[in-house]
Design a protein around this nucleic acid. Structure first.
Lengths: 197, 197
DNA sequence: ACCTGAACACCGTTCAAGT
DNA sequence: ACCTGAACACCGTTCAAGT
């Protein structure tokens, strides 16, 4: 646990005083708890308070909410990227794409309100989360391309459109009690389309 | 303009002092301007201030943000209902459904962030907006049923799922610069589905 | 009957002062 | 080098006091 928390922040490459590292890790652990409880829009002051830290300290470690989300989620985005790469070997290209979209949607419901943040991120190259998303996007794109090449997916399907729609499904899934946990249904509907054949 | 503003609130049926009515109308006009400018999440204090009214007065007229939105939008929901009824006579049932969905999505982008409010509303029978939405939903549902009966739309398509997805498209459309104004593309994608035939 | 505006408990964010 | 916590400008919301 302590180890994984350190790993999580190794990419900063900056030597850090031991106590600062502790504060850093504590903030992350508490933020995860608070976001899980109240969603990705939760009060940052509450995070600071429950971490036993002044608000200034939190801002010093994570200048923006996006930065905090990035630290918490970059590993998971990397996992999604790896999942996509693994699925490139699956025999059924359409099923592989569906499985990955399902994983993507599922990931976006880690915290309530996360899909909104990620949507903003996908559009804004300046965002801290953007880089983490990029790799995942590319790998997912390859799954789509392969499915098109094997003729199972309509060639008119655009990558950006598809990700946007998957994101939208995650959004509606977490917002509507009627659809909670039924993202699969909506994904299936998207797969078949409205028109009968 | 003054007349339409009075009509808008006639449904309260409560006799009102002339000055109160003026205040009421002024708040609505200003709220429309502020929501148009800053989205449906705009500051209510700003609305009050620009209407030259204390915050307490605003709350007195519209106890919740939803109530304010309802007063501003109920006419438009009624229009959507009428549009759906008219389209029931259109020869091409699939085209009629698409046209209505387009109008629905377009309506949800009246204010930025409106789709989120409406989504919450569709799920919450207690909400002030719920009643306004109900009629529209039913009329839209008839369009779907007819399209299914004529065999043009897949019978597996569920009404609640479809509205949720249309709402989701509106959401993603207003959030992503890349998809701004291209809700049509996403709707087309939803129509054809992912799988090639 | 209706409106006012000070007041309250929050929010994100900054920054001088401490250790 | 790092942390603190008071301070600032906001937010939604309430309510005693005025007209």
């Amino acid at each position: 646990m302590a180890i994984s928390a350190s790993d999580r922040t190794d990419h900063t490459r900056r030597p850090r005083r031991a106590d600062a590292q502790q504060t850093h890790d504590r903030i992350l652990a508490v933020a995860n708890a608070v976001f899980t409880e109240h969603g990705a829009d939760a009060s940052l002051n509450e995070v600071a308070q429950r971490a036993g830290v002044g608000p200034g300290t939190l801002y010093r470690h994570f200048p923006t909410r996006q930065a905090l989300l990035e630290a918490l989620l970059s590993e998971r985005f990397a996992e999604l990227r790896d999942t996509a790469r693994d699925l490139l070997d699956a025999p059924d290209t359409a099923e592989a794409l569906t499985a990955w979209l399902r994983a993507f949607i599922n990931h976006l419901t880690t915290y309530r309100g996360l899909s909104a943040s990620v949507m903003d991120t996908l559009c804004d190259p300046e965002s801290s989360l953007f880089a983490s998303c990029q790799d995942m996007r590319e790998s997912g794109g390859k799954l789509l391309t392969r499915a098109k090449q094997t003729g199972l997916v309509d060639v008119r399907v655009d990558e950006a459109d598809l990700l946007a729609l998957a994101n939208a499904i995650a959004w509606v899934t977490e917002r509507s009690p009627a659809h909670a946990g039924r993202g699969d249904n909506l994904l299936t509907l998207l797969g078949h389309g409205l028109w009968s054949r």
